[in-house]
Write a protein that binds this DNA or RNA. Structure first.
Lengths: 232, 232
DNA sequence: CGGCAAATTGACTCATGTCAAGCTATGTGG
DNA sequence: CCACATAGCTTGACATGAGTCAATTTGCCG
């Protein structure tokens, strides 16, 4: 039963080049669990015992400070999260909760660190993955600091459109309140921001978005590969 | 002449464990150059040919988007920067300029990637460094999204005090305009933020800061190890 | 001493957050 | 099948935070 998950994990960039024996070792040590919706998988500050992999469903990474909370990322199948904490054997900097019913694989961090030392290909894959994560967070910081909330929303819509089929109509992948938090604004402000994009051809109906004038929206958003390209 | 720089580079966490032969290889391929103040060392978007190391002076990492610019970090001796771009052989996401007269070592990225594959200890050091960088950016994002500008300034002052001797009086390490940009606000706003910290015992005289009531400032700033601790 | 850039200040505008009310969609239980 | 409860979303009115612009002041360097 457990072996059925190997192929999808094996295809992850971080595991695709590791030697068969080492991959087997990692899978031997791993757990796979199903979680219901809205379960807190990890809590920031806790020691990082496992590298997590989302096999199905979706997971939100978020963080709190006193009374405030912010959404930092959404993890979708099939990808890993909290690799950095696992590598460094340091406390989690973010909390994680399931957004929906999800299947998660858990690989003990110490096995990850051990195989890292034994398998150069795996080491290279880990460092690549980590560099990608780093670059993604830097892009996110630039987005936050260099753009207004309206520009952030416009560019988010273009990225999301691209991530999905690329069609002029698509659905937001989660609630607007989460999107607002991810973009660094309040839900009320997000509502108004959607209105503010109306002149650039953005029509909202519930969670369905229609981009009626692609060129116009692009002209306003001015997307940049150094901020918006994923995996670049 | 060139060999005189080896000891300080060798002591960097990222090089301290690499085998002597491999370290020698890297140094053979490296350049060391002196740059005057305010020289742009790298430009975002350019291909990343070198891993950079600040040996003396200081370097600002910043980024622009259309008419706006923001300061992302300051690199001080002795440490590396743009490791992620070098590892991935991807374009720089940030630009870098000297803040003062600086001495910089340049190691060809391809040599870094080659030695990574030949020396497990080096690979481990690189992944550790990269994980630390990643965690630093995540902390910075949390700082930006979870705190007001007044709280960011208060926590910055506490971190900077700590980074220096820890004494109640210390000097800001660079201009206020840069600090403002780093903290995500305008210079005007920073001026007012300093005034706003007056009630918590912060006295400003030029670039000299006096913290007259440490406990009061800490109570206001509410620093957290998951946001403010460096290298944690 | 003079000139320049940085920093400060005040007045103002604009963006964003807050609070409260109402709306809508959804799911549940009667 | 409908009434209701609930949670999310929207809207309006308002408060506050932050940016802008312009005018000084300060401090530094030639």
């Amino acid at each position: 039963m457990f072996e059925t998950y190997h192929p999808e994990i094996r295809q992850l960039a971080i595991f695709s080049t590791v030697a068969e024996g080492h991959f087997h070792d990692l899978m031997q040590a791993a757990y796979v669990q199903n979680f219901p919706q809205h379960v807190e998988l990890i809590t920031e500050g806790d020691p990082s015992d496992f590298l997590h992999i989302v096999l199905a469903g979706s997971v939100e990474l978020f963080s709190s400070w006193h009374t405030r909370e912010t959404s930092l990322a959404t993890v979708r199948p099939v990808s890993t999260f909290i690799l950095a904490a696992a590598v460094r054997d340091a406390p989690y900097l973010m909390s994680a909760r399931t957004l929906e019913k999800s299947r998660i694989a858990l690989i003990p961090s110490q096995d990850v660190r051990r195989v890292f030392g034994e398998d150069v290909e795996f080491a290279r894959a880990v460092v690549n993955e980590l560099a990608d994560c780093y670059r993604a967070v830097v892009k996110n910081t630039k987005d936050l600091k260099l753009r207004t909330s309206l520009e952030r929303l416009a560019n988010y819509l273009l990225r999301e459109q691209n991530r999905q089929a690329g069609a002029p109509q698509f659905a937001l992948p989660y609630e607007k309140r989460r999107l607002a938090s991810f973009l660094g604004m309040t839900p009320e402000n997000l509502s108004r921001a959607f209105k503010g994009l109306r002149p650039y051809g953005v029509v909202v109906d519930g969670n369905r978005i229609s981009i009626t004038d692609q060129a116009d929206l692009v002209a306003f958003a001015k997307p940049s590969p150094l901020i918006d390209d994923r995996g670049g």
